[in-house]
Design a protein around this nucleic acid. Structure first.
Lengths: 109, 109
DNA sequence: ATCCAGATAATAATTTTTATCATTTGATTT
DNA sequence: AAATCAAATGATAAAAATTATTATCTGGAT
């Protein structure tokens, strides 16, 4: 599964299930879910939730943002913004910030 | 339903369903889903997908970002970052950028 | 009052995800 | 190599979430 995620970059459950069935013909969907959840809990992978689409999963790497092409649906990793100035109400303590950009990729433009 | 979203700010399907049942005792969950989808399609409301939680919905207003308290789960609207410098690969055309910040709100700190 | 289009409730059907549990696997010990 | 045993898997059921269907209801236009 990690190999598949390595290759595909960002894959949803069905991608993973269909790919892995090539090598392990008899694998069950439940096992895929179970392993995904185990790896999520272990912090090995991350879930990317996108409006109107099924969640995708990716191997956790250095902090980055995501660009989602609204035409082909492909997800691209992009560098995290260099500047990210935001103002929080007093007493709020930020831990993480995630940025998601939608638009058209070079192929679909 | 819009009144509920107005009051709650960010509500998930169950919130909405339970609230609306007070006034319309016999309403069915399917109707709530159908109306949510209609309003989504009409661009009246927006879906906020959060890792590990059910989607929340909010009335579409001026562009803003979201702060999610990882303790109480509350969502707060915050101003969109003043600076948001990111570099895209050549040929990529950004349309929208959404920022989501997790951390602790003033109540939970 | 009648007609009609659209909305709703009730329910069924789908889809997605999780739980259960008997079986299998594979590593370890004997 | 056989026995042991914990952990993983597959098959299935169950639960949760969402969508589709359809008969009924509602409220305005005729």
């Amino acid at each position: 599964m990690l190999k598949i995620l390595e290759e595909r970059g960002h894959a949803d459950i069905d991608h993973i299930y269909n790919e892995i069935k090539r090598d392990f013909v008899s694998i069950s969907l439940a096992t895929v879910y179970k392993n995904i959840n185990t790896m999520l809990d272990a912090g090995l992978i991350e879930e990317i939730k996108i409006p109107k689409k099924k969640s995708r999963f990716e191997i956790k790497k250095s902090k980055h943002s995501h660009f989602i092409c609204e035409k082909c649906g492909e997800i691209y990793d992009i560098d995290v913004p260099k500047k990210l100035d935001f103002e929080l109400p007093p007493g709020f303590e930020p831990k993480e910030a995630s940025v998601m950009i939608t638009g058209l990729c070079s192929n679909c433009k």
